[in-house]
Design a protein around this nucleic acid. Structure first.
Length: 959
DNA sequence: GCGATTGA
DNA sequence: TCAATCGC
């Protein structure tokens, strides 16, 4: 007979409970009494599986306690920012303990030590004593404990079998030479879950490189001066952090427990207790299974070297020992089944599962649908759904020249279908014809991530997407406007899932990057299927989250309808007068050369004027225009507009440089760049609106950015002449809200003098000036008006006294005085601002008129800078955001109106408070009055709203 | 104040 | 990545 093997299994209870809880987060198991049993179920399942398959001879389950550990004492932030433990887990812990008790499995607890310390200590001792030790945990920190007879046992998970990690696997996992380097890696990269800081900016890859080169953190310190660049700087700054992080990541294997094999011997459970518990939890199949197994496997009947006493026998005793304890000190098992009156939560310190789910360890079925029969069948199944998720794979991120490579669909979590689409357009259309009906079906909801993109791509194949939309990117934008909304990030934070990266399919960004067309169908099926599957799952979560922040209505009635409006606007595009731009380009080129030679002459040398570095050197080192030149934060000379404006009277060169800058900007950013963006297919320019970047709720525009076409300077303004109507039957109609933000502020604050000024149609900036400077309205000078206007804007944009002083180029004291006078005159505004900030301190968010939230946790920060920033945002976000809400509603209503009336005119641009139309001459009177009305009445306010509407042969004339 | 773009 | 500049 083979030498008997003593198999000791040590389970990290909380890690396994968390993992089980989150594995069932989408489809939790709820009993008829409403108890969420996911965590207990998952834990029990794993436990039974191990007992059955691995037949351990010894077993122990370690828990953390609430007592502080050396890590807390050493590093106070340790685990401090951990999210509160989900209630379902708090409930699960005593149930798991009851289960262990019933099954006669010992629990290991010791005050002042975490589960990993206890497991580490016992593992080392048992390994010495000749056991094969398996530490059951998903936590990567345990890698440091692995040695010849000590392994990590990753439990089976979502269809993937269990995994045993030995020394070689750990070395491979981290790309290191020795096991003890695991803690060097962790010390450098940190661990967000455990709040181990590490070195900022150093992730897994960098940490591996550093350890490969320097072997250990200690040795790295002695060579720290050799490391160049930003990385070296970061390391030098934070080296203390790394040392401390390494200590924090080190598992203590000297816990004062005595490893007593007998204590951990597998014994038989109490069948009655198990049955009672499983009945209570309504675990029907588990009950069958556990009764089927009968008693767990008996321990090998051998004595264990180094262990005290012989291994226990009599494991068939149904009345096995109650929960056992280890240690020289009495270990505490304080948690009863109901310990509601415990002074603090017993399990505040528990860790989330640190293993990311990926396509390789997660159950899924992603199918390729590539025959006419399968497509017909898929289309049929889609047609009987109330909702499905879809995603397009294309050759380009630009919707105008994107060619469809394939479509993926998902309507059940874990399952998706990928339909490849050939490059040949006729064949592509033939395939798409199968799905036209479901896409255009009004009854079926369409789910996707950044649906505007997919809608525009399909539009190029003459397929319209109808029905309710649900965009996960925009849903998350409403949930967390300040965060990022990419699918990969969402999958990570909401599903603990890391999707297949695009770069693994087509390579890194750059010239060498391939296109989706080059990816083989099996791979792209996995990638695209995963996208649709994950998006569907995210949507389920978000549709539950949105009502919690009262954002469902905003989502369904504003953002989703607006998505369609924006898609239509982008698709329509704007006609550009390319010839006019070419002429301008030639003129600008000429003036640019002129300015250039004058600058060289004045400087006495030629250099690159566009290089702030070279310019600074010429101006301040060679020409010495100022004694004490200002520097930027990187140590360069500052040559910004404010600085050069101050120098204007000192030396002609300053004025010429400013001219040069303006010309250069106009030429490169607009005059030369715009024609290149005209689509070859439509002959028009199709900007792309981003609905989810500006945290206040505003839109942004890219490719090109049509929201920053010049208007301030006469030369810049000329560029607007190139934005022209479709043909001679059309004109450009521009409608903008007059002072929308100030009117909103007047309404929110209820300031009577401001409301009155607006309702009587007076000049608001002059009115402000007359009050702030205490003069009659007709005695307001242009300088007073200018300053008051700045204050008004300052409030809207949330700038500080410092910012105001800078913009007005006046001393800070004067700026503060103007602000003081302003608040004295407009005391309701001051009162409103105070109230907003106070509310924000309490709720840690502010909201717009439609309930769009912006979270401002820093409003209660002790850091002045951060708090000031949050306070300005608290004022600014509701005002700017409500203005954004208002124009969004107006756009939806105008779009609906134009559609209902079947107008030939089109809405083509939105610039924050302005809408631009390509208006058919016959429709202008109707359009004009209707646009005005719909803009003014989009959201009723107790202040009169006004618009300014102009019509012309181009955008400039329409102003 | 923010977001987008450009050029070094 | 940074500095500068355009719009709102």
């Amino acid at each position: 007979m083979d030498k008997p093997v003593h198999k000791l299994f040590l389970l990290d209870a909380m890690a396994l409970i968390y993992r089980a809880h989150f594995a069932f987060i989408k489809t939790p198991r709820i009993t008829s009494k409403g108890l969420n049993t996911s965590a207990v179920f998952g834990f029990a399942n794993t436990l039974l599986e191990v007992l059955q398959k691995e037949k351990p001879t010894h077993i122990g389950v370690a828990f953390d306690t609430s007592a502080p550990t050396f890590r807390h004492i050493q590093f106070e932030a340790y685990k401090a920012q951990r999210q509160e433990q989900p209630e379902d887990i708090t409930v699960a812990v005593p149930l798991v303990k009851r289960l262990l008790d019933a099954m006669c499995i010992p629990t290991l607890v010791m005050d002042g030590y975490e589960a990993d310390d206890i497991i580490g200590t016992i593992a080392k001792e048992a390994g010495q004593a000749g056991f094969e030790v398996f530490m059951m945990t998903p936590d990567k920190d345990y890698g440091q404990l692995v040695e010849q007879h000590i392994h990590i046992y990753k439990p089976a998970f979502m269809g993937k079998g269990p995994e045993v990690l030995g020394v070689q696997q750990i070395l491979d996992r981290w790309q290191i030479r020795r096991i003890d380097q695991v803690i060097d890696i962790l010390g450098l990269m940190g661990d967000a879950v455990d709040n181990i800081p590490g070195i900022p900016g150093v992730g897994e890859k960098t940490a591996q490189k550093l350890i490969q080169e320097y072997d250990s953190i200690e040795n790295l310190i002695t060579h720290v001066d050799e490391i160049k660049g930003k990385l070296g700087e970061k390391i030098r700054e934070n080296i203390d952090m790394a040392v401390m992080s390494k200590q924090l990541a080190t598992i203590d294997t000297r816990v004062p427990v005595v490893f007593d094999a007998e204590d951990l011997t597998v014994c038989a459970g109490n069948a009655d207790k198990i049955v009672a518990l499983f009945d209570e939890l309504e675990f029907k199949t588990l009950k069958q299974r556990v009764l089927g197994i009968g008693a767990p496997a008996p321990a090998a009947k051998v004595s264990i070297p180094g262990a005290s006493g012989p291994a226990a026998q009599g494991q068939l005793d149904l009345f096995g020992n109650p929960t056992q304890e280890v240690g020289k000190q009495p270990a505490i098992v304080s948690e009863g089944i109901a310990d509601d009156d415990a002074p603090e939560q017993a399990f505040e310190d528990l860790r989330l599962p640190t293993t990311r789910r990926t396509i390789d360890n997660t159950f899924h079925r992603y199918h390729t649908v590539d025959t006419p029969e399968l497509m017909k069948s898929l289309a049929y199944y889609l047609s009987i759904q109330d909702a499905f998720c879809f995603d397009t794979e294309t050759t380009s991120l630009d919707t105008i020249d994107a060619e469809l490579v394939g479509l993926s669909f998902s309507y059940l979590p874990g399952e998706a279908f990928y339909v490849p689409v050939p490059a040949n357009r006729d064949q592509a259309l033939e395939i798409l014809a199968n799905f036209r009906e479901v896409f255009e079906n009004e009854r079926i909801e369409k789910i996707g991530q950044n649906l505007k993109y997919d809608i525009l791509v399909l539009r190029n194949y003459d397929i319209e997407v109808h029905g309710t939309l649900s965009d996960t990117m925009l849903a998350h934008y409403l949930l967390e406007p300040d965060k990022r909304h990419g699918m990969d990030i969402l999958a990570g934070s909401y599903l603990n899932y890391e999707p297949v990266s695009i770069t693994s399919l087509i390579g890194k960004k750059g010239v060498k990057q391939g296109t989706m067309r080059d990816v083989r169908i099996p791979e792209i099926t996995q990638y695209a299927g995963e996208d649709a599957d994950i998006t569907l799952q995210l949507n389920t979560i978000f549709s539950r989250e949105l009502p919690k922040v009262k954002a469902s209505k905003l989502f369904r009635e504003v953002e989703m309808p607006l998505l369609k409006v924006l898609a239509a606007m982008e698709s329509t595009g704007v006609r550009l007068d390319i010839d006019a731009l070419r002429d301008m380009s030639a003129v600008l080129e000429n003036d640019l050369r002129q300015a250039e030679s004058e600058i060289y002459e004045a400087a006495g040398q030629s250099f690159n004027i566009s290089s702030p570095k070279q310019l600074g050197e010429v101006l301040f080192e060679k020409m010495k225009l100022i004694d004490k030149p200002k520097k930027t934060k990187t140590g360069q000379y500052a040559t910004g507009e404010d600085i050069l404006s101050d120098l204007e009277n000192n030396h002609v060169i300053a004025r010429r440089i400013l001219d040069y800058r303006e010309l250069q900007k106009l030429k490169s950013t607009y005059v030369d760049a715009l024609p290149l963006l005209v689509s070859r297919r439509t002959g028009r320019i199709h900007t792309s609106y981003n609905q989810a970047v500006a945290a206040t709720g505003r839109l942004s525009s890219t490719n090109p950015n049509l929201q920053n076409i010049p208007i301030r300077t006469p030369r810049g303004r000329e560029i607007r002449k190139a934005f022209v109507p479709d043909n001679d039957d059309f004109q450009i109609l521009s409608a903008d809200y007059s002072q929308i933000e100030l009117r909103i502020m007047a309404a929110f604050s209820g300031d009577t003098s401001m409301i009155e000024a607006f309702n009587q149609g007076r000049d608001i900036h002059a009115t402000t000036a007359s009050k702030v400077f205490q003069v009659a309205l007709d005695e307001v000078t242009s300088d007073m008006r200018r300053k008051s206007k700045m204050v008004n804007f300052g409030i809207i944009y949330g700038i500080s006294a410092f910012g105001l002083a800078q913009r007005l180029a006046i001393p800070r004291g004067e700026a503060a005085e103007i602000i003081r006078a302003y608040f004295e005159e407009f005391s309701s505004v001051k009162g409103y601002m105070d109230k907003v900030i106070n509310d924000a301190r309490e709720k840690e968010y502010v909201e717009t008129i439609l309930g769009r939230r912006r979270y401002l946790p820093d409003i209660n920060s002790r850091n002045m800078t951060n708090r000031g920033y949050a306070e300005r945002n608290a004022i600014n976000a509701p005002i700017q955001g409500s203005a954004a809400d208002m124009i969004k509603v107006a756009m939806i209503n105008i779009h609906d109106f134009m559609k209902a009336e079947k107008l030939k005119s089109r809405m083509i641009l939105q610039v924050h408070d302005e809408l631009v139309f390509d208006a058919h001459r016959d429709e202008i009177p109707l359009l004009k009055s209707k646009v005005d009305e719909l803009m003014r009445t989009a959201i009723p306010l107790p202040v009169k709203m006004e618009t300014g509407i102009g019509i012309g042969a181009n955008w400039l004339e329409a102003h």
